[in-house]
């Protein structure tokens, strides 16, 4: 076990916790999803986000043992468990993003630290810094094509791919966990901007927000 000082960012104290888009719903509204909606937007709020840095081989062994997932070694790789709840994404040759259900991240971090011991690595809990927006529906790709500079055609962006790129001038992690779903991991401070951008751009597809 390393001597890094860690603490659980989720406390037992009764502080009301609001998802990053709580204010946006109040100020900009949230159009209901209907049968005519060709795009559905849903925020997957308050998940556990960890950034792992270190050598691929060392981290792969630890992650396989602790999380039961392989570390994607190829650039732009994204792996997830059968239920799609836990995922690991390649960010750079020595950096990966792990997303787990909210509340699991501290235990995962502790177990990874125990397993990694004195190896050369870094684990950062970035759960509070970013949020995940999920787009589904037949026009989701068309909506992304309005601004994402990366080629999102299925032949170039198959399921199981994730890239860091530019979305509406903001840095975004864009992932495709399944055929019909797209995920945007955005900065918490950019969440309201991205939300309003999506509402505006999705108006013609009768975008609906599921809360």
């Amino acid at each position: 076990m390393s001597n890094a000082a860690t603490f659980d960012t989720r406390t037992d104290s009764a502080i009301p916790v609001e998802p990053p888009l709580a204010y946006s719903y109040r100020r900009s509204g949230a159009p209901a999803a209907g049968p005519e909606s060709r795009v559905i937007l849903r925020e997957r709020a308050l998940l556990g986000h960890l950034v792992l840095r270190g050598g691929a081989i060392v981290l792969d062994e630890a992650v396989r043992e602790v999380l039961g997932l392989n570390l994607p070694g190829e650039p732009q790789g994204l792996v997830q468990d059968e239920r799609g709840e836990r995922s690991i994404q390649w960010l750079s040759p020595d950096e990966w993003l792990v997303i787990v259900p909210g509340g699991e991240e501290f235990e995962l971090e502790t177990r990874l630290r125990e397993r990694l011991g004195d190896a050369h690595y870094a684990i950062s809990d970035v759960s509070g810094g970013q949020t995940l927006l999920e787009l589904s529906g037949e026009a989701a790709r068309e909506l992304l094509m309005k601004t994402v500079i990366y080629d999102v055609h299925p032949s170039h962006f198959p399921v199981g791919r994730g890239v860091t790129t530019v979305f509406a001038k903001a840095t975004t992690i864009l992932r495709r966990p399944s055929e019909e779903r797209w995920e945007l991991v955005v900065r918490r401070s950019f969440a309201d901007y991205c939300y309003r951008w999506l509402l505006d751009a999705g108006e013609e597809y009768a975008i609906g927000v599921v809360r």
Binding site: P75, Q76, I149, T165
Partner: peptide
């Protein structure tokens, strides 16, 4: 050379 693919200039 690290991502192994071509990307837009805007990212650099």
């Amino acid at each position: 050379p690290y991502c192994g693919e071509h990307r837009e200039e805007e990212e650099f």
